[in-house]
């Protein structure tokens, strides 16, 4: 058969790893996008509000911390304090917070890159800050945000493999298990690389298309 040394059971095992990677990424990145939108908008506020400072602290902190550390602290760290957390809950939380910080920065930069004249024209019509964001600034900023946001997402999909350090059997850890059984590292890792490529490449195509269309 095509996969040589890989049995059906091995292939199924890798498939399960793929699904766990997807599940982690979809949930974690989904929540991260929401966090990023909220904190990015709060941080872009030109007035020095408390929420702006909280958003800035959140974004700066989680951008400075390695994702692997977040996985370890999120799971083993919390358990060591005597709390019970599910492995999935811990890794999703870590990925969400991490993604949220990077997306937050993208959102903030996007908002700030829309010219001051757009704000002035809007408020001169009597529009509020929130209405200006909603009807004038964000529709323009989103176009600027899409390419870097997709870059962040691709980075996080690849980074999700680090969840293996806490025993979450995502794609890479599943692969290591299969290698231990089959002694076929190149074949297994080659397959896994292909799978990551299949997940990530459409995202970069999407980015290019949106960039051209918008």
């Amino acid at each position: 058969m095509v996969f040589g040394k890989l049995s059906i059971a091995d292939i199924n095992y890798l498939w399960r790893g793929t699904l766990l990677t997807l599940r982690l990424c979809l949930t974690g990145i989904g929540l991260g996008l929401i966090l990023g939108a909220i904190f990015g908008i709060l941080r872009a506020n030109p007035r020095k509000t408390l929420t702006k400072m909280i958003a800035a602290a959140y974004i700066e902190f989680f951008r400075a911390v390695p994702l692997m550390l977040l996985f370890v602290v999120g799971y083993f760290g919390i358990i060591s304090l005597g709390y019970n957390v599910s492995r999935f809950g811990a890794v999703v939380a870590a990925i969400s917070l991490y993604t949220g910080a990077y997306i937050g920065q993208v959102v903030r930069t996007g908002i700030e890159s829309v010219g001051r004249g757009q704000w002035e024209a809007s408020v001169s019509l009597g529009m509020s800050y929130v209405d200006t964001l909603r009807y004038v600034i964000l529709p323009q900023a989103v176009k600027i945000m899409i390419p870097p946001a997709i870059g962040v997402v691709i980075g996080v999909v690849k980074g999700s493999s680090l969840a293996s350090v806490v025993g979450y059997v995502e794609l890479v850890l599943a692969g290591r298990h299969v290698i231990q059984r089959t002694y076929a590292p190149l074949l297994v890792m080659g397959t896994i690389a292909m799978i990551y490529f299949v997940i990530c490449y459409p995202l970069s195509i999407l980015s290019k298309n949106l960039e051209r269309k918008l």
């Binding site: 010219g115 004249g117 024209a121 809007s122 001169s124 019509l125 009597g126 209405d131």
Partner: peptide, 30 residues
Amino acid sequence: RANIGFVFQHFNLFPHLSILGNVTLGLKVV
């Protein structure tokens, strides 16, 4: 501000809205 028009040197039209959209936005939102 809704009662004071302001016309800028560099127009500051909203590029993502049609001409009609530019002129109706203040009416609809404000």
